[in-house]
Design a protein around this nucleic acid. Structure first.
Length: 518
RNA sequence: GCGAGUGUAGCUCAGGGGUAGAGCAUCACCUUGCCAAGGUGAGGGUCGUGAGUUCGAAUCUCAUCACUCGCUCCA
């Protein structure tokens, strides 16, 4: 376990060395927590997308996909709660290095003063016994009045400061109140900073006429605002799902750990619209179905676990994560949320449009409930890489680095080598390449010794290496070498398409869905 | 954002005031021909960037950028 961290480092440098992930804008020293996917990375990423899309959309009659715009009407984010919930003024104590929400610090201070008042009231009650009149005591006791005035003043100033987004005034308040850090006990505070987790940009080219719009912090809202369009044009009946893969943007305070937490990331989300009252049933169905999807990759069920949320987000009545055993420990890979009718209700209210679903069987209208499955594509990518990366000691004393990527996800499905550069072997190999590349991404290589070429393909996770030798010219057979076992088999060229198709086809992964009940 | 650490060739690193090194990788040619590291040769670095000190800075100082690890939150 001590070298778990080293594994992450190795995966990162392997990713760069073999063209999976590069730091963004690297020639300009990079851009913090932004990464680009390289020639093999983009293939792997596309294959993961395909696996998800097919498992969710193609394999479910009642789930369809959309591709909504990243830009959305600003009111969408008011309705969703993101404008309010993603706007925290934060302040750091320089001595303890602890970070606090400025508004929480002030509110706690108010509560503290109120506690003191209550203490005085209790004292008074004890002193005066049965004759005690709390209202009168509060109105007349000088201590209480002084403190109450303090609270009133503070509340007033807080309201002014927060409504005007006056960060300096908020800091002044904290200083004036002599609020101290509970950990260090000092009042050595930094500036108050506003961390808006949404990226804003300007829509409209004429200055002064533009409006601030946000880059979406989640793809889900694009589904919610289109739910009725899809339901009506697709003649969808409850329960039905709408899936989407797309970029989302969050201005994370701390974005790190390679591609695990980025400011620009890609989500694969599916919103499942259901009858109110059936959410428990569907929530547990999707928990099981999504876990089955992960397990289909074959990395071992020990590497996955559920983590139920105790404290729920403002929109959920149940929520859990599927966590994966990353090199840096178990971390969230996917979230499954029972979102109730919160989002659709909110959009109904803010838009003034009727978003109810008409149930012809029951002859009634209602706003559907929603179960959401939301998975981080970049995180699955990292999980696949981390779980696939193996350094192996071989029997002959040598070692190799191999990516045991599930074959349907592998960036390159087959590499074709002429054993030598002579005797027409390259031409024959090119011929096989042309035969296979209609269906699979293939690579042709004739440089270096055959062993070197095998190892290079191991390092990018290519499941099969096909070698053309002198016997090929005689009887049209080649050797095909399997990545994980390194075993070779002699097969005829005409068998290759079928053999590859079975092993690297997405069908192999998608078969899992039959194992989930309902 | 704050604190600590790191930054020299594609990768891993050495050099700690006197003008740039090794191994691997890359490229060319030769050799071998089914599991990496055979021979010969070549290319590649304004030492993260910018200032300062100095006759002279990769080396000392400051700033800045990026990365790694902690502190919050999430996909």
């Amino acid at each position: 376990m001590a070298d778990q961290h080293d594994i992450l480092k190795k995966v990162i440098s392997h990713s760069k060395e073999y063209g999976f992930v590069f730091q963004s804008s690297e020639i300009y020293d990079g851009l913090s927590a932004t990464y680009d996917y390289g020639q093999y990375g983009s293939e792997l990423k596309n294959n993961i997308k395909e696996f998800w899309w097919k498992a969710m959309v193609q394999m479910h009659e009642n789930i369809v996909g959309i591709d909504s715009a990243i830009f959305m009407h600003p009111t969408v984010w008011k309705a969703s709660g993101h404008v309010d919930a993603f706007n925290d003024p934060l302040i750091d104590n320089k001595d303890s290095k602890k970070r606090y929400r400025a508004d929480v610090l002030l509110e706690e201070h108010v509560a503290k003063i109120e506690g003191k008042i209550q203490k005085d009231v209790n004292k008074g009650a004890k002193k005066f016994g049965a004759d005690f009149d709390e209202t009168e005591f509060r109105a007349t006791n000088p201590n209480v009045q002084r403190r109450q005035a303090q609270i009133d003043d503070l509340n007033k100033r807080m309201e002014q400061a927060f409504s005007g987004d006056d960060l300096e005034a908020i800091r002044d308040l904290i200083i004036d109140m002599e609020i101290k850090c509970p950990v260090s006990g000092t009042a050595n505070w930094t500036e108050v900073r506003q961390f808006n987790l949404m990226f804003g940009t300007e829509l409209g080219s004429v200055s002064g006429e533009s409006a601030t719009i946000y880059l979406r912090p989640e793809t889900a809202q694009g589904i919610f605002v289109n739910y009725l369009n899809v339901q009506k044009t697709g003649r969808m009946k409850l329960p039905f799902g709408v899936a989407q893969i797309g970029k989302a943007f969050r201005n994370e305070i701390v974005a790190r750990q390679f591609i695990f937490r980025m400011r620009e990331f890609e989500q694969m989300e599916m919103q499942y619209f259901i009858q109110p009252g059936t959410q428990k049933e569907w929530y547990s169905y999707w928990k099981e179905a999504r876990m089955a999807w992960h397990n289909a990759l074959g990395f071992g069920s020990d590497n996955y676990r559920f983590h139920d949320h105790i404290k729920l987000a403002h929109y959920a009545d149940a929520a859990c994560d599927i966590e994966f055993n990353f090199p840096m420990g178990f971390k969230e890979l996917e979230g499954i949320h029972s979102r109730t009718d919160f989002d659709l209700n909110a959009h109904q209210e803010f838009s003034g449009k009727n978003l109810t679903y008409f149930d012809p069987e029951k002859n009634e209208r209602f706003v559907p409930y929603v179960i959401e499955t939301s998975i981080g594509l970049d995180r699955v990518f990292l999980a696949v890489l981390a779980a696939s990366y193996k350094e192996e000691e071989l029997n002959d004393g040598t070692s190799r680095v191999v990516l045991r990527i599930p074959p349907p996800l592998a960036p390159i499905k087959a590499a074709i080598f002429p054993l030598t550069k002579k005797d027409g072997l390259p031409d024959k190999a090119r011929e096989i390449m042309r035969l296979l590349q209609f269906d699979h991404s293939c690579q042709y290589e004739e440089k270096d010794s055959i062993g070197k070429r095998y190892r290079r393909q191991d390092a990018i996770g290519t499941p099969f290496c096909i070698t053309v030798d002198h016997e090929t010219l005689e009887n049209d057979t080649v050797t095909i070498r399997e990545r994980d076992t390194m075993q070779q088999e002699r097969v005829s060229i005409s068998k290759l398409p079928e053999l590859l198709g079975e092993s690297v086809g997405m069908k192999k992964l998608l078969n899992f869905s039959t194992t989930v009940s309902k």
